[in-house]
Every structure is written in structure tokens, then in C-alpha cells.
């Protein structure tokens, strides 16, 4: 990674049936896209607990991408719709914490849409790059005079919100 340019780290929660395969297809088709997204496989975007997103941001990610099947195409009937509902609520919460909306994005990509997923990763990487590093852990946990808190305690705090 170059010293001058900020390379954001994005955690991607990809649905096993569509977006994960879309990323597979992007690779198989040798579509080149930003290496900034690190994928975690989940069985369904509906499995993405908002805690996963918060955890990733807290552990140092600059952005989180949740990717699932297009509405109406969910392998599990409507898990993606549940993901969407949670995402809308999560965004409100993130806004209150001052986390820009570009940092957490929900993307639809079917198994045949490798190029679409690659484009989304490229776009999001540039958006997050423009925003700069999040450093949430430092800003929130260390910056206001508190001592660093143990992870387990923070989780409880998040749940209460």
C-alpha cells in the first residue's frame, strides 16, 4: 500500500448464494477491482446481525458492505428484505454517532452479476477513501477521556442503544 494514498479497509458480508458467488464470478472472469474489500461469507444477508457491522467498524474497518440477493430473489424467500429493514434502522443509529452513510452500504448482486459487485466495491472504496479513515475505536473509545473499554462491555453498551 502506498504511503500517500489512504487505502480504506472494507469488510464485506456476502450472501453465500448470490453476492459471494458474484464475487467468485468476478474473479473467475478476471474482473479487476479494488482489493480493499475483505469478504466474510454468511448464509444470507438476513443473517447479518447489526452487531456484525458495529463490530467491524469498532475493530478498525473504514466501511462495511452488506451484499445480498435482489429483492424477490432471496434463496431463503425474504431474508434480504429483513436485511433491508435492519439496515434502515442501523443507518439511523450510525447517523447519530456521526458515521457517514457511505461507510455502511447495502448492495444487491445476484450470482450472475460479478461485474456489478466489482463496480460496487470500486465505487464504495473511492467513496470511503474520500471520507478518510474512520478510526472509530480511537475516536469513540479513546478520545473522550475514557480508558479503553473491554470488548465485552462495549457490546452491552451497543445493545442498550
Amino acid at each position: 500500500m502506498s504511503e500517500q494514498q489512504f487505502e480504506p479497509v472494507i469488510v464485506g458480508f456476502l450472501c453465500n448464494w448470490c453476492s459471494y458467488r458474484a464475487a467468485d464470478l468476478a474473479g473467475t472472469s478476471r474482473t479487476k477491482y479494488a482489493p480493499n474489500m475483505r469478504a466474510i461469507r454468511v448464509m444470507c444477508s438476513g443473517r447479518v446481525d447489526p452487531q456484525f457491522v458495529l463490530k467491524a467498524l469498532r475493530e478498525g474497518a473504514d466501511g462495511v458492505m452488506i451484499a445480498g440477493c435482489h429483492p424477490g430473489e432471496c434463496h431463503y424467500v425474504e431474508g434480504n428484505i429483513k436485511a433491508l429493514r435492519r439496515y434502515v434502522l442501523l443507518k439511523r443509529m450510525l447517523k447519530q454517532w456521526g458515521i457517514e452513510k457511505e461507510r455502511v452500504q447495502l448492495v444487491w448482486a445476484s450470482a450472475s452479476e460479478g461485474n456489478l459487485l466489482a463496480e460496487a466495491v470500486d465505487r464504495m472504496t473511492e467513496e470511503v477513501r474520500a471520507l478518510g479513515p474512520l478510526r472509530w475505536r480511537q475516536a469513540v473509545l479513546g478520545g473522550n477521556g475514557h480508558k479503553p473499554v473491554e470488548t465485552a462491555e462495549v457490546e452491552v453498551e451497543v445493545e442498550e442503544v
Binding site: V9, V11, I40, K55, E59, G60, A61, D62, G142, P148
Partner: peptide
């Protein structure tokens, strides 16, 4: 949850180090 949380921590090993919380 435990497995996914651990995976998140694992893939973010580098940024976790860079962003150590000030004591």
C-alpha cells in the same frame, strides 16, 4: 456469533494494530 466475530477480528488484524486505542 462467536465464529463471525472472531473472523471479523481476524481479517482486521492489521488495522487493529494500527489503531491501537491510546491508553
Amino acid at each position: 456469533n462467536e465464529q463471525v466475530f472472531s473472523e471479523i477480528e481476524g481479517i482486521l488484524w492489521d488495522v487493529m494494530e494500527h489503531q491501537a486505542v491510546p491508553a
